[in-house]
Design a protein around this nucleic acid. Sequence first.
DNA 1: GTCTATACTGAGATAGAC
DNA 2: GTCTATCTCAGTATAGAC
Lengths: 197, 197
Amino acid sequence: MTAPSDTRHKLLDAAERLMAEQGIAATSLRQIIAEAGVNLAAVHYHFGSKEEMLDALVIRKAGPVNEIRLALLTRFEAEAAPNPAPVEKVLEAFLAPPFLERERSPLFVQVMGRLYAEGLMPSIVAKHFQPTVSRFYAALQAALPHVPAEEMVWRVHFMIGAMAHTMWGPPGQESAPVVVRRIVQFLGAGFRAEVSE
Amino acid sequence: MTAPSDTRHKLLDAAERLMAEQGIAATSLRQIIAEAGVNLAAVHYHFGSKEEMLDALVIRKAGPVNEIRLALLTRFEAEAAPNPAPVEKVLEAFLAPPFLERERSPLFVQVMGRLYAEGLMPSIVAKHFQPTVSRFYAALQAALPHVPAEEMVWRVHFMIGAMAHTMWGPPGQESAPVVVRRIVQFLGAGFRAEVSE
DNA sequence: GTCTATACTGAGATAGAC
DNA sequence: GTCTATCTCAGTATAGAC
């Protein structure tokens, strides 16, 4: 009994490497199958389309990252109990895992950045990240009861933009913890801002 | 003496309309030339490629937006003299013009958002926006002397991310001034954050 | 069930006639 | 300056070998 689909993994590995390097739109299926040493139609057989292969690529590693996020959040909430976790801790739980993953497995996170940069992320978030997003929403609301819900939507939106932009192409080379400290400090102050007018 | 290149303008108008509606990658040259009523080869004659046509599209309207930004900044600096303009005013000068332009001429700013979203913006910024960016850097440094230069680079990066993400797809329908107030408040607090550690 | 060979359609780019 | 015709390469789809 051999691996039921070695081809499948070879395709995902090759796609990850090439797409991280060149971008998603710029990477053709023919490049990917050449790198993987398989036939073009295998893509269609295993995934159905280039887009569905991307979904599989994301699911393969986004799942673990989101689990770490939730575990961290749970821990920080326990540490702060009976108070809600402070906003900086909530942000750290959300931001640290992907930035650390970026160091451990740069290829995948580059692909994620490409997904944002090429406008493909919203549908993937909706498909695979929604539960995580909801949980963090609640934690932010608990940490900042003075921020109205409709303002919170915008602040989360700003956070996602800053995170995505930085994940894709940070302005310098610094270790993940330093980057996380910078972005948590910046966004934490933003989230805490008084809501005026 | 007729217009030296009516075709050129017809192409840009058609491209702007179609790309704003459908996205950039999703809009084919063949759609554009059909809409403009010209021949396919005219695109390559006038612009060289689809990408260079995009550049021309951006240049056509980015210039005015950047001029308004600089004029606003100059005015706010004069109002605050002899002190430097406060960071919220600097941010307003940078952010308000594109968001207002978004309302006046949604097509163009949607195209700009698409450029960010599809990862084409960095090269365009480098080509056409660099002088504006430099001027605002100086204003931010003046407003926030306690923020070290290397931290400022990151904070500007976060700001660009939040702005781009919001320009492309805001989480709700609100008038430009309201959106600008929200984002200025959020980012202003972030920029003012103490630099610790 | 898995995979290969091959064909189809539509994209952007280009050469050369006018 | 503009247009016709053509080229290359993309993603997708099908037929059929194993």
